[in-house]
Amino acid sequence: MTDSITISIDGVEIPAETHHTILEAADKAGIYIPRLCAYPGLKPNGSCRVCTVLVNGRPQTACTTPVMKGMVIQNETPELKRLRSNLIEMLFVEGNHYCMFCEKSGNCELQGMAYRLGIKTPHFPYLEPKREIDATHPDVLIDHNRCIFCGRCIQASKTFDGKNVFQYIGRTRNKKVGVNADDGLGETDFAATDRAAQVCPVGAILKKRVGFKIPIGKRIYDRSPIGSEIEVQPKDAGSAQ
């Protein structure tokens, strides 16, 4: 059972269905709410907090909060932009993100988000954790230095691929994405064609031998900011209303 209702985002009234989350309703209406862990078709877990919006004045993650009639949502406020920048900066200092030699550079959602928010450098001290690289699989490598713990690979492996390759292991600063084998990804039934190999927002799960194929200037976020693919849509939808 779904009902059509109306919610307001930054003063714009948009239609929504009651089974939608705020993020889904905003996407459909062409309003981009920044996010790093939410992914279409996967159950949202609200882990990155980047999609935090103010719902009737209270901070909520847009990816996990269902819409309700008459919700008043704030998305693009200076304070939320600052909070999101802080979150992105913390993700940068928490891992080892060396964009200059990363194969994902230009197509990386974390980097793209930093560009969109205009971050020039993190304000926090670099933690420089010691993390491993798992190159045991013939076609895919895992570089834990770049993992931001979004959980997409874990869920995609279960939901899309019907496998169970990844799982979090450890807690707090020892937390990492582990694989379902003793000696690395190469021992699992993981395949390069798995959707789980494609959903990583950063350069943590990379296909081998395809790096740097797209020249600088033609990569996803070289010209247009992350989110513009959603923001473009709305103008059509908006004019139709």
Partner: peptide
């Protein structure tokens, strides 16, 4: 501007 802010 956006086009000039790059980390690589």
């Amino acid at each position: 501007p956006y086009e000039l802010l790059k980390y690589d």
